[in-house]
Design a protein around this nucleic acid. Structure first.
Lengths: 380, 380
DNA sequence: GCGAAGATTGAATCAATGA
DNA sequence: TTCATTGATTCAATCTTCG
C-alpha cells in the first residue's frame, strides 16, 4: 500500500530528481558503514531517526562483583575511540547525513550516557537541530555500583530534536497522556532494562548484543512522535529493536548495521514480529504499591533538622537526628527502625510510627511527613 | 585555626608566591564578575565547586565575540553559531578558573537543563575533568507544559566530576546509602522544586530569584561529596542556597554574585542560618576508614588458637590456623585472603567475611573478632 | 610501580526445590 | 498441580588503597 503510493509519486518527478531520489529500501536492513549507507539515501525522505550510537565507554580493567563473579562489560571494538576528537568527528559525520535525510518536519532521537551524550547534544545544537526535550530513561533495575565508589548509574539520557528552530514535528500529546494514566507525559520515563524473553541470546546462551534496548522505550518514542506509515531510520540498528517496534506499530523502518551477527539476529527477530491490530495498541499500566520513603529525605527537605530530638511513642526514650538520616541515642546509632528496636529491646520496630517530634507541646508521629512526601510523589 | 595555618604557611613563601596565595575570603559573598573574582583566588585552594551557571544569557542586541568585536546582524546560521560560540567561550573561561582553584582531590558539580548542559558537559571533558556521574534531579512538582506541544520538562541534569582521570575525590558512600533506605544512592534524585517558606520573596511578594534551587538538593550534594570543614565555592551564588546549606552542615563557603539584589537577599538569609550540632553532622562512615587489623593479632590474643579449624562461608572448605597468623589448607598456605581466593578459584577474596569459626554449632565469621579489636582500639 | 589487603551488589528472571 | 521459597544468573561500568 505505502509502496504503491510512493512509486506513483516518483513517476511524477522530473529526470533530475529521479536520480537523486531512488526508492527507499523500506523494511530492510542495510549492511555496511552507516555514513556511507546514509549517503546513498535521498534528501528529505525520513520522518524519524532513532540513533543509539557507540557510547565510547573507556573502560579500563576487569570488574568483579562482591561475590567475585566477573562483570561482562562492553569491550567491543566498535565502542573504542582514541580521543574525544575522533569521537566528535564520527558524530559530526553521521549527524550531518542524518539531518540531510530528514524531511522538513522530521525529528531525531539519540540516546547516550554521560560518556557521550554531552558531545551528542552539543553537536546536535551546532548543526542547527532544535532540541525539543531531553528525556531520562530511569532504569527500574540498573546494575549496582559494585565498588561503592560512585552513585549507581541508574539512567540514560535521550535527546529529542526537530530539524531546526521553528520546524513542525509530530507529537501525539493525547496518546502519551493516555500512556501516563491521564496526566501529561513527563521527561523522565521509568522502564526496566531489557531482560528475560525479550533479550536475544546466541547459540551459547550469551547475550547476542551487549546493549539491547527495551521495546518499551521504542514503543513510547514511536507512539509519541510518529504517525502510522511514517518511515523510521535507525543507523545503528543492532539487533533491531527499532525495527521490531516499528513493525508492530505499523511504521516502516530502515536499519543500517555493519555487524553480520547482529543483522542475522535482527532478521530472525523481525520475521517473528506481528503488526498489532489497531485496537491492540492499548497499554497495560502496572499499579505500584506505595513508594518507599527514606527517613533521610525528611532531613534533606528540612521537615526535621539535624540535631533535632525525637521522642518515642511512650515518651520514655529520645534520640537525635543526624544529617544523613540516621538517629543517635545514648548508646546506639542507626536507622529509625534499628534505634527504636534497640531501645525497646524488641526484635524489630516500625520507626515511622514509633518516633515523634514535638510541635506546640504535642507529640506528632514522623509518619505524617512520610505521607506528605508520598502525596508529592503521586502528584509528580 | 585553619586561618592561622594558612598565614603561617604564607610567611614561609617567597615573595613571588605570596602574591598568588592570599588568605581565602571564607564565608563571604564577593561581588562582581565570577571569572575576575576567581582569578584573584589562589591555586588548589577549593575542595568543592557547585555551579549553576546562567543559560539565558541576554545576548540579543549587544552580541559580542570573545575578542569583544561586535557581531553584525547576520542570518540565522551565523546568529546561532555566534550565540553558541559566545556561550562556549564564557563556559570555557569560568571552568578554566574553576579547575585551577580546585585542590587535586577536589570536585565540581554543575547543573543545567537541555539548553546548556550539553555544552557544559562537553567543555568539562575537553578541559580534562573526569565525569563521575551525571545526576538527574527529578522534580516531583514541575511546571506543566501548558501548550501540550512537548513533554513536561520535569528534570534538570547535574554533572559531578573530579579534577582529572584517576584523581581521588570525596564520596560518603555510607551516608548516601543511609539517606536512601539502606540501598545505594542512585543517579536519579526525586526532590521538589523550591516553594513555600523556603522560596525567597522581595518586598513586592515576587520571587527574589527566578531559579532558586531547593536546599534539599544542596544537602544531598554536600553530605555526599564533602567533609565537614571543606571549602565550597559557588561562582553563581544567586540568593545563596549553597552557602546556606554549607553553613548548616559545617562547611565553609565562598560565594560570587554580581547582582546586588541577590547578594542582599543572600546576606539576610545567611544571617538567619544556624549550624547544626557537630554530632548531628557526623555521618555513617565506611569500613575503609577503619584501622587495619592483622589476622595474626587474633591468634596473639587467644581469640583463635593455632591448630584451630576455620570453615569457608559455604561450608565446603576448611583450613587450619597457624601461629604466625597464616592459614594452611590441603594444598595451599598463606594469608586468610590468599587461601580463600585459591580455594574458590577467585581473583581475590576478603578473608574476614569468608572464614568462619564454630561456636556452639554455629558458624561465626572471624570478622566479629576484628570488630572487637577495633572497638578496643577506639576505647583505648 | 607492584603486590597484597580487603571492600563491595539491586532488581528481575528463571530454574530447582519443597510444601 | 499449584504456590511459595531459594539459589543462580545477569544487567552500556569510565568502580580501591596502602605500603
Amino acid at each position: 500500500m505505502a509502496e504503491a503510493g510512493r512509486t506513483e509519486r516518483q513517476t511524477m518527478k522530473t529526470k533530475e530528481t529521479v536520480r537523486a531520489a531512488p526508492a527507499l529500501p523500506l523494511n530492510t536492513i542495510l549492511d555496511g558503514d552507516c555514513v556511507e549507507r546514509m549517503r546513498a539515501l535521498p534528501d528529505a525522505s525520513i520522518d524519524l531517526i532513532f540513533a543509539d550510537p557507540p557510547y565510547n565507554l573507556q573502560l579500563k580493567g576487569e570488574l568483579h562483583r562482591p561475590d567475585n563473579s566477573r562483570v561482562d562489560a562492553v569491550d567491543d571494538a566498535w565502542d573504542r575511540f582514541d580521543t574525544f576528537a575522533t569521537y566528535d568527528a564520527f558524530t559530526k559525520a553521521w549527524l550531518t547525513e542524518a539531518r540531510r535525510l530528514l524531511k522538513p518536519h522530521g525529528a531525531i532521537w539519540v540516546i547516550g550516557s554521560y560518556h557521550n551524550v554531552f558531545r551528542l547534544g552539543a553537536e546536535l545544537q551546532n548543526q542547527g537541530f532544535w532540541i525539543l526535550n531531553d528525556v531520562v530513561w530511569r532504569k527500574s533495575n540498573p546494575m549496582p555500583n559494585f565498588r561503592g565508589k560512585r552513585l549507581t548509574n541508574a539512567h540514560e539520557t535521550l535527546i529529542w530534536a526537530s530539524k531546526e528552530e521553528g520546524a513542525k514535528y509530530t507529537f501525539n500529546y493525547e496518546a502519551l497522556k493516555a500512556l501516563n494514566e491521564g496526566v501529561q507525559m513527563r521527561s523522565d520515563w521509568v522502564i526496566p532494562i531489557c531482560t528475560g524473553h525479550e533479550r536475544l541470546k546466541d547459540e551459547a546462551g550469551d547475550k547476542a548484543h551487549p546493549t539491547q534496548k527495551p521495546e518499551a522505550l521504542l514503543h513510547r518514542v514511536l507512539v509519541g512522535t510518529t504517525k502510522p506509515g511514517d518511515v523510521v531510520l535507525d543507523p545503528f540498528f543492532g539487533t533491531g529493536t527499532t525495527g521490531a517496534v516499528a513493525k508492530m506499530l505499523g511504521r516502516d523502518f530502515i536499519g543500517i548495521e555493519r555487524e553480520a551477527s547482529y543483522r542475522a539476529h535482527a532478521e530472525k527477530r523481525l520475521a517473528r514480529v506481528r503488526r498489532f491490530d489497531s485496537d491492540a495498541l492499548e497499554v497495560t499500566t502496572s499499579k505500584r504499591g506505595e513508594p518507599r520513603v527514606a527517613f533521610g529525605v525528611l532531613v534533606e527537605r528540612g521537615m526535621l533538622r539535624p540535631g533535632e530530638e525525637l521522642w518515642s511513642l511512650n515518651g520514655r526514650h529520645k534520640a537525635k537526628v543526624r544529617a544523613d538520616g540516621t538517629l543517635v541515642a545514648q548508646d546506639v546509632k542507626g536507622s529509625i527502625h534499628q534505634v527504636g528496636a534497640h531501645l525497646e529491646g524488641a526484635p524489630s520496630c516500625n520507626g515511622w510510627t514509633y518516633w515523634h517530634f514535638r510541635r506546640e507541646g504535642q507529640r506528632v508521629p514522623i509518619d505524617v511527613f512520610r505521607q506528605q512526601i508520598r502525596a508529592e510523589m503521586r502528584a509528580g
